[in-house]
């Protein structure tokens, strides 16, 4: 029996716009039912990737499949299982919230009465019952984004692409949207979202793909990435060369920085008390070797910046090293 194909799969995807390379051989797999975040700065190729997967743009090279269907050759099939919600709410300003949803539901193939029921259900679920009869032009940013997301769910897609779903939203609306994404994932929908915010990726995603320069700079679960690229750095200054050597052996390849002259060692940590205490105990079980220690707070954003500011070749090596 053949195993089910991944929800989303790209192989060596390439795309240039007017000589500018946007995607330079991106290979990515998104497991069925997972939430996957594409993280990267502006111009990293996030939106282009999503547009190719959503059948809106054809790739120059490589292949992309959704639910096992090729996004170019089997465009129709792909369109039956996907939906796209973006940073620019794709709605008619002059129609009411309810009219927009009913229209989308009819286009998704529902009968008039089924469309009406589906719209009512989604309005309820997205807390839009009160403004349902108002024109979208009068909606706040958060309301529009919720309606846009509701509109993308009329056809009950199995894969949903969210292109920067919370860009420009206030913290409360962002929170609300995160909850909805959580519910979607809970219902078994595969979610591929792009974001510039590490916090968002960390909060929502099962796996994060960091895009840089049109390729994959790093990929893994949020905790893997944090472990690898470290949110914090524990810096130890040892008493003497013996304790320095012992600690270096005990910490092994977790050591990211060593300076035998100044007797300094550094390891990455999540900064939590438990982990720092454990690391100290491990490096120095007799509690005699460490002269001083410092926990240097680096935010996840710093990690992201480090990862996406180095030249591409170095970024690529990071993947190879996994």
């Amino acid at each position: 029996m053949a195993t089910a194909p991944p929800a989303v799969e790209t192989v060596e995807l390439r795309k240039s716009y007017g000589g500018v390379v946007v995607l330079d051989g991106l290979t990515l797999r998104v497991a069925r039912g997972s939430v996957h975040a594409l993280l990267g700065p502006n111009g990293a190729g996030k939106t282009t990737t999503v547009r190719i997967l959503a059948t809106l743009t054809a790739p120059d090279g490589g292949a992309a499949r959704v639910d096992g269907h090729d996004v170019v050759r089997d465009r129709r099939r792909v369109r039956r299982s996907i939906s796209l919600a973006g940073q620019h709410a794709a709605l008619d300003d002059a129609q009411t919230g309810r009219e927009n949803l009913e229209m989308m539901a009819r286009l998704a193939g529902l009968t008039r009465s089924a469309a009406r029921r589906r719209a009512a259900e989604l309005l309820e679920r997205f807390d839009l019952v009160a403004p349902a009869g108002r024109r979208v032009a009068t909606y706040s940013g958060g309301m529009r984004r919720r309606l846009d997301l509701a509109a993308s769910l009329v056809g009950e897609p199995s894969v949903i692409f969210l292109d920067e779903p919370t860009t420009g939203l206030d913290p409360r609306s962002r929170q609300g949207l995160w909850e909805v994404v959580g519910e979607l994932a809970g219902a078994g929908v595969t979610v591929l979202l792009t974001t510039q915010y590490l916090e968002e990726a960390d909060r929502l995603a099962d796996r994060i793909a960091v895009l840089h320069g049109g390729g994959l700079a790093a990929e893994g679960t949020p905790s893997e990435l944090k472990r690898r690229f470290g949110a914090h750095r524990l810096e130890l200054t040892m008493h003497d060369t013996t304790s320095f050597a012992d600690a270096a052996v005990r910490l092994g390849d977790r050591v990211t920085h060593r300076d035998p002259v100044r007797l300094e060692l550094a390891v990455t940590t999540d900064g939590s008390g438990t982990q720092v205490r454990d690391l100290l105990d491990e490096a120095d079980p007799d509690r005699r070797g460490i002269a001083r220690f410092t926990v240097r707070g680096a935010t996840l954003d710093d990690v992201f910046l480090t990862l996406t500011s180095r030249p591409m070749a170095a970024g690529r090596r990071e993947v190879a090293g996994v």
């Binding site: 809106l56 796209l84 794709a90 989308m104 286009l107 998704a108």
Partner: peptide
Amino acid sequence: ATGVIERFRTMDV
């Protein structure tokens, strides 16, 4: 100029 056509296209309209 709005995104609505793109949504229609992803819905295979």
